[in-house]
Amino acid sequence: MAGTKEFVEADNAEAIITRIEHKSRKIESLLKQHKPIEALKTALEGSPPNTRDERCKSANWIVVHRAMMAIKDVDSLFSSLDPEYYDILMKYLYRGLSTGDRPTCDQCLRIHEKLTERAGLGCILRSLADTVNTV
């Protein structure tokens, strides 16, 4: 029983990885067209918080990170980013801050300031209190 479940999980993980690879190609082409906000939206869409497979989470973090670092104008990001992305973006900001990498943290803190203004402390609470749907 446990064996089949693991198998399903692994099978599922492969499918998620394939989807992320596809997403990655789309993000690259959006970045080439100078649409960093569209790229970030694409990266955040269909994030795999439900799976426990670390490979999927890392793979998606890499594409989110790629899109996030391309954002130059944080103010214009929030004028076109819909509120439904706020919670998931906050989770990735904390993942970025946990890397300790200087440029990544700089960028995360810049976005974090604006996001907190927009979405309030509740958004931070939702990203910190949730131990099930991690990114």
Partner: peptide, 28 residues
């Protein structure tokens, strides 16, 4: 309420409940 700044409303409590989640922007 949940400690993640959410409040939950549930109608028709029974075998098939109807639930609504409301997220708010402030502390829990």
């Amino acid at each position: 309420v949940g400690h993640n700044s959410m409040i939950y409303f549930v109608d028709d409590v029974g075998p098939s409940p109807l639930a609504q989640n409301v997220a708010f922007r402030d502390l829990p």
